[in-house]
Each structure stands twice: as structure tokens, then as C-alpha cells.
Write a protein that binds this DNA or RNA. Structure first.
Length: 623
DNA sequence: TTAATCACTTAGCAACACGAGA
DNA sequence: TCTCGTGTTGCTAAGTGATTAA
């Protein structure tokens, strides 16, 4: 028995909240069941009919009907072939030259390789940035021979353009390859995938997410990253730690090399790892989202969010109460939590200064990131947020808050400099410890999941018209999805081709409109004709024309809907919320309820990731 | 208590693949 | 058959949060 039930029991506010569960014929786990055991165990079907059947079986393995590990172990058996390494460096042909100070200069292999990284990026804005150039040059020099080092002292005197053109020509040539050549490459990739892209975990063949080691290159951080341009070094077998089970066939390192270590840790899910040289962080090779190990975790995440749904009222009352606390730390905690809940802000761990771009989340907000307006237009107590969040995406929002929150913020700001922390008595660890006491498994990010999913559900209810056509319903879905993306601030750069593609679509719409008027005219003529002659033939003609008009009307509407959808989506990315925040069972239920094919909402990859939800959720599923 | 380490999720972008239309 | 545009996939950076070490 997990501590869940024990720990949360005395905290549970009233214990008689209505159950959101509908008992279906299909199984539906709720959180109480999550930590205990599944209702039934699927028989591990024995497959005796040979490989094809076995493959079929694997594809349809319903891990969500099986028992889960309760001892913290992630697997019993793990076997894989190890990672695929980046291809070795191929020196440039002799006629492709590097020039220093106007004179051709032959570089050593190592220095040349690093030079090519820069040369390949010449068209990119990065290479014009001071920090990028400085970091690159510093790391490049480390790879030079002492002779090269003494000669090459100024990046501005380096001319990489011949190299740059060579690579452009190469990629052009790749595009121009014959069908057969392309096919050959495809087959080779497929072979590699078959050999290295899968592992055996507990009797099942599972897809690996990233079995290729990241190739060397220049580090590209996001935003104003102090380390942009640094050399990301080549990873060798000697850098790799392999994780697999003792009794498996261990992966073989490439001939003449050794792994750094082979270990057998079934408390973790990764198959291989290495330490990256820019931040010194560890990178992992892990399974695909369709795998049992990722799917279970994902499912569990949504169950935790659903448990929050049951006690969120209590928690909200609690933090509203805490706005009045005598203790500063409690007030800060309560205001921060209010932002996390209301605005779906991220927790905001502190970061090491100078190591990464200057970005913040809720707990790490600084005075300079908010502005207070006692009055703004017709609203009172408005807070303006303006800061860079994850991936240096700007968060900008003006929202009216409750008077108490406003007064507290004024208090927090007293005697502080712009660069001081807004919540100086708070960090994510304090906040999460508090949340843990309010609900088992509760952390700051659960609020994002909860608010995203509940918003989708609400919006779908509000926006879907049962009598709408399928495209119109899908527009409603996308709008609901968009509401979530806006809440979570999931932005994207407007696609480079946006304007043009909008124009193209408009052209299509105009054409369709013309077509429609023409078709209508024809229908009218046919009707007149029929009225005059009253014969069978003309009656048929009317029918045919009527159908044509109808078809064109539908096509036109579809195009118009598409245009609306695209316009509204210009700067908003729907993918992130769809993949990470929205309980897929809400979408599945919606599809079932309105007869929308699931393929219209989830593509193949997404259907694989959400197979558990697609199998599990019925039309009356409630988040 | 704080800092470092580790494991894992979340994120946007660029390259790629593929089908529709020229 | 080629080109173009779009959806898909891969890549890997950048977060969160638990655990461990100092």
C-alpha cells in the first residue's frame, strides 16, 4: 500500500465530493486504484503461429491492462544493441579551401572539422552574434595545432565561404539524387532502425526514442545564451554508460573501443547515457512515447491532475486565506500559488547565473518583471507581467487581480531593486513541500496539467454544436485546443510561408465562390427547363445540379473554416499542449460522442502515444 | 539548509517526406 | 515528372522535481 491513502486521508476536505466517475463497461482507473492494482490481469497471450502473429500481438499489447510494478523498479529484463554513433568526420576535398587573411591555408583534420561546423552555419544569424563568435573561436583554437594557433588569431580574418558553398552544393546534390539512390538511403536507415531502434523490455519489443548519439557541432542555445557557439564535442563509446539487465546480451562497443561502464540499474528507465560538455548535464537514451514505461507515467500524470480536480476548491480557499497570513513567507507562497493556478505559470526553479539564458518562472520572478496599476482603463488592480520564460519565450499579460493579491504584491515590492526576487522568501522546493502536504503527489506543474485539461473539457462543451459538420466541429476542437495553448503561452514563430499560404487559400476560396455562383446559375436554368418541359430527363438534370451546388457549398465552407483556423493559429503552437497537457481521454471521448474519426485529431504518432486512452475512454468520459 | 546530481518531461525549430497540383 | 506547400518527425535544449551530498 502506498502512503497515498494514509497520508491524504486527514487532509481530504469533506470526503463527500461527487464522484466524477461514470462506471462504464470499459475499465476506467481512478487514482485510488492507481497505486493498488488493476482490476483484471490480461492473460499474456501465447503466440504460437509464428513471427507475423507475434508482430501483430506486439503492436496491440495492452500494457494498461496489466499489473504495474509497486516496488519502484522499472523493469525486470532489458536488452538492447546500444546507441548508433555519429558518422566519422570526412575531410574536405583538396579543392575546397579555407582562407586566412586572404591566403589559402590547409587545416589539420581536427581544426578543419570544427571549422566546418561554423562554415555550415554561415547563413544563420547566430554567426553574426558576438558571443557566438567569441565562444566558437575560443573552442576552435583549442582544437588547433600550435602552428595553427599562432597563425589564426582573428576570426574576422577567416574566410569560410568556399566551405560554405561546398556544403550547399552537397545538400543540393542530395536533393537531386535519383529515386534509386534515395531509396537506398531509406533502406539503410530502415535497417539501422530495425537493428538499433528497438529493445526488449520485459518480454516486449519496444521502440527506442533516440538511439542516435548527438553528433558534434556548435552549441545553439535559445535566447541570449552565454554559451552559444561553444563546441559540442564528439561522443565516443568511452563516454557511454550502458544500462541493461545482467542476464541480457550486452551491447557490443564498436571494434577496438570500450564502454565507459555497463550497469544494471532497473530503478531507472534509460538504456544509455553520457555527460554533455556544455552544461555538464547528463543525456539519456530512452524509450519512445508509445512504450509502456512512458505511457504508464503519462497516464499517472493525468490521474494526479484529476485528483487535484477533486480538491482544488479546498486548496484555493486555503491560499486565499493565506493571503491574510501574519507570515511573509506564507503570503508569498499563497500569491505565487495563485499565479501558478490562475495563469498556469511554471514553477520557476532557480538557475545558475551565467550558465544559461536569463529566464524565469513563477518563484523566480523578479521585481522588474511585474508592474502594478491600481487603475487601468476601466479595471482595478491590474498586474502586468513581462518576462522571458522557458526557451526565452516572452510572457506578456495584463490581468486584474483581487485586491488582497494586489496589496500583497505592493508589500513584496517594498524597498527592493528591480533585479531583486519578487518572492524572496520562496522557492520551488518550499512551494512543492507545501503542495505535497495539501495533496499526495501535488507539485506546481500539476496545476498546469489540471488547468489545461479542464479548460479543454469546458471549451469543448461550450464550443461544439452537435449539428455542425465535421470540419466545423474540428474547428471547434482546435479552438478549444487553442484556448489551452494561449493559457500555457505556447507560442511559435509565424511560419515563414504564412502570408503566402494564406493568400493561396484565399485564391482557392475565391475560385470556389465563382464555381458556386456558376453552379447555382446552372441549377436555376435546369429548374426553369424542368418547369417548361416537365419530363424525366430535365427532372434528373435538376437533381444533378442541386447535388453539385450542395457539394460545392460544402467544399467552400471547408475552405473557409480552414482559413479561419489557420489565421487564428498564426503564432500559436497547438502541438505542445496536445502532446503534454491535455488528457487524451477527453479528446477520445469527444470524438466518440460526436462521431469524429480519431484520425482527424491525432496523427499516427499521436495515436501510438495515446493508444491507452483510445482503447480506454468512452464517450461519457469525464476528466 | 543549500548545492549538486540525476532522471525525466516539456519545448520549439528545422529537416524531411509526401501528396496535390502544375 | 517536378515543384511547392504542409504535416510529420527528429533533434536536442530547457525545464521540473526528487534525491543525494556537503
Amino acid at each position: 500500500m502506498s502512503p497515498a491513502a494514509i497520508k491524504s486521508e486527514p487532509e481530504e476536505d469533506n470526503g463527500f465530493y461527487p464522484s466524477p466517475h461514470h462506471k462504464n463497461s470499459k475499465r476506467e482507473y481512478d487514482d485510488e486504484e492507481w497505486d493498488i492494482k488493476p482490476k483484471k490481469k490480461t492473460k499474456d497471450k501465447k503466440v504460437t503461429e509464428g513471427k507475423k502473429a507475434k508482430k501483430e500481438e506486439e503492436e496491440k499489447w495492452k500494457w494498461w491492462e496489466e499489473e504495474r510494478y509497486t516496488d519502484g523498479s522499472k523493469w525486470r529484463f532489458l536488452e538492447h544493441k546500444g546507441p548508433v554513433f555519429a558518422p566519422p568526420y570526412e575531410p574536405l576535398p583538396g579543392n575546397v579551401k579555407f582562407y586566412y587573411d586572404g591566403k589559402p591555408m590547409k587545416l589539420s583534420a581536427l581544426a578543419e572539422e570544427v571549422a566546418t561546423f561554423f562554415a555550415k552555419m554561415l547563413d544563420h544569424e547566430y554567426t553574426t552574434k558576438d558571443i557566438f563568435r567569441k565562444n566558437f573561436f575560443k573552442d576552435w583554437r583549442k582544437e588547433m595545432t600550435s602552428e595553427e594557433k599562432s597563425k589564426i588569431t582573428d576570426l574576422n580574418k577567416c574566410n569560410f565561404s568556399e566551405m560554405n558553398e561546398y556544403f550547399k552544393a552537397q545538400s543540393e546534390a542530395r536533393k537531386q539524387m535519383s529515386k534509386e539512390e534515395k531509396q537506398k538511403i531509406k533502406e539503410e536507415n530502415e535497417r539501422l532502425l530495425q537493428e538499433y531502434g528497438f529493445c526488449i523490455m520485459d518480454n516486449h519489443k519496444e521502440r527506442i526514442g533516440n538511439f542516435r548519439i548527438e553528433p558534434p557541432g556548435l552549441f545553439r542555445g535559445r535566447g541570449d545564451h552565454p554559451k552559444m557557439g561553444m563546441l559540442k564535442r564528439r561522443i565516443r563509446p568511452e563516454d557511454i554508460i550502458i544500462n541493461c539487465s545482467k542476464d541480457s546480451k550486452h551491447p557490443k562497443p564498436p571494434p577496438g573501443t570500450k564502454w565507459k561502464e555497463v550497469r544494471h540499474d532497473n530503478k531507472v528507465t534509460w538504456l544509455a547515457s553520457w555527460t554533455e560538455n556544455i552544461q555538464g548535464s547528463i543525456k539519456y537514451i530512452m524509450l519512445n512515447p508509445s512504450s509502456r514505461i512512458k505511457g504508464e507515467k503519462d497516464w499517472q500524470k493525468y490521474e494526479t491532475a484529476r485528483r487535484l480536480k477533486k480538491c482544488v476548491d479546498r486548496i484555493r480557499n486555503q491560499y486565499r486565506d493565506d493571503w491574510k497570513s501574519k507570515e511573509m513567507r506564507i503570503r508569498q507562497r499563497a500569491v505565487a500559488l495563485y499565479f501558478i493556478d490562475k495563469l498556469a505559470l511554471r514553477a520557476g526553479n532557480e538557475k545558475e547565473e551565467g550558465e544559461t539564458a536569463d529566464t524565469v518562472g513563477c518563484c523566480s520572478l523578479r521585481v522588474e518583471h511585474i508592474k502594478l496599476y491600481p487603475k487601468m482603463d476601466d479595471q482595478e488592480y491590474v498586474v502586468e507581467f513581462d518576462f522571458l520564460g522557458k526557451d526565452s519565450i516572452r510572457y506578456y499579460n495584463k490581468i486584474p487581480v483581487e485586491k488582497r493579491v494586489f496589496k500583497n504584491l505592493q508589500l513584496f515590492l517594498e524597498n527592493k531593486q528591480p533585479e531583486d526576487d519578487l518572492f524572496d522568501r520562496l522557492n520551488t522546493s518550499i512551494l512543492n513541500k507545501h503542495l505535497q502536504e495539501l495533496m499526495d503527489g501535488l507539485t506546481a506543474k500539476v496545476f498546469r496539467t489540471y488547468n489545461a485539461s479542464i479548460t479543454l473539457q469546458q471549451q469543448l462543451k461550450e464550443l461544439t454544436c452537435p449539428d455542425d459538420s465535421i470540419p466545423a466541429k474540428i474547428l471547434s476542437y482546435n479552438r478549444a485546443n487553442r484556448a489551452v495553448a494561449i493559457l500555457c503561452n505556447h507560442q511559435r514563430a509565424p511560419p515563414k510561408t504564412f502570408e503566402k499560404s494564406m493568400q493561396n487559400l484565399q485564391t482557392k476560396i475565391d475560385e470556389k465562390q465563382n464555381q458556386l455562383s456558376a453552379a447555382r446559375k446552372q441549377l436555376k436554368a435546369a429548374k426553369a427547363d424542368h418547369k417548361a418541359s416537365h419530363d424525366e430527363k430535365s427532372k434528373k438534370a435538376v437533381e444533378v445540379k442541386r447535388k453539385a451546388v450542395q457539394r460545392i457549398e460544402e467544399q467552400l465552407m471547408k475552405l473557409q473554416v480552414q482559413a479561419t483556423d489557420r489565421e487564428e493559429n498564426k503564432q500559436i503552437a497547438l502541438g505542445t499542449s496536445k502532446l503534454n497537457y491535455l488528457d487524451p481521454r477527453i479528446s477520445v471521448a469527444w470524438c466518440k460522442k460526436y462521431g469524429i474519426p480519431i484520425e482527424k485529431i491525432y496523427n499516427k504518432t499521436q495515436r501510438e502515444k495515446f493508444a491507452w486512452a483510445i482503447d480506454m475512454a468512452e464517450k461519457d468520459y469525464e476528466f
